[in-house]
Simulated assay, not measured.
Amino acid sequence: MPKRILNGTVVSDQNSQTVTVLVERRFKHPLLQKTVRRTKKYRAHDEQDQFKVGDKVRIQECAPKSKTKRWEILTSEAAAAE
């Protein structure tokens, strides 16, 4: 089964080797046909503590690294665009 990859923004980097990433998804409401925004926060592993608040990043599913961490950072979106 392929691992999920999500795009998001770092909203917290206070913990060592961990960042909190806010991921937003948009979808059309089934009845009202209005575009709805939903957000969710994921805690991701950041080995070198290189990402700061406001950075756009890509995260990927991985084996559990701690009680709350199930994701790891692949790259920043700026580096992926180049």
Rank of each mutant, 00 (worst) to 15 (best):
T18L: 09
V36C: 05
N7E: 12
D13P: 05
T35K: 15
S66G: 05
K67I: 00
C62G: 06
R25E: 09
S66K: 00
V53W: 02
N7A: 13
T35L: 15
E47P: 11
M1W: 10
E47R: 06
G8K: 06
P64M: 03
Y42E: 07
C62V: 07
T18H: 03
Q33E: 14
V21L: 05
Q14H: 11
L32G: 00
R43W: 09
E77R: 04
N15Q: 14
V57I: 12
K69M: 10
I5F: 05
D55Q: 08
V21R: 00
R26G: 01
K34S: 08
T20I: 14
P64F: 01
V23K: 01
K52N: 09
Q48I: 04
G54H: 04
V23E: 01
T75M: 06
Q33V: 09
L74A: 07
I59M: 05
Q48L: 12
K67W: 06
R58H: 03
K40H: 12
V57K: 03
K28V: 15
K65W: 08
K40F: 05
E77F: 00
L6G: 02
Q60V: 15
I59P: 00
K67L: 08
Y42L: 06
K67D: 10
D55P: 07
V57G: 01
Q17M: 08
R26K: 13
T18G: 03
A80S: 12
E77Y: 00
A78F: 11
P30W: 03
R25N: 12
T68E: 12
K56Q: 10
A80Y: 14
A80P: 01
R26M: 10
A80W: 12
A79S: 13
E72W: 03
A81W: 04
A78V: 12
S76Q: 05
T75K: 05
V19W: 02
R70V: 00
Q14K: 15
H45V: 02
I59G: 00
V10E: 07
G8F: 07
R37Q: 15
V10F: 04
S12V: 08
L6R: 10
E24M: 05
A44I: 04
K28R: 13
I73T: 02
M1R: 13
A80V: 04
A79M: 11
E72I: 04
F51K: 02
S66M: 05
R58S: 10
N15M: 14
T9L: 13
K40M: 11
V53Q: 09
R38D: 07
R4L: 13
P2N: 10
T39P: 00
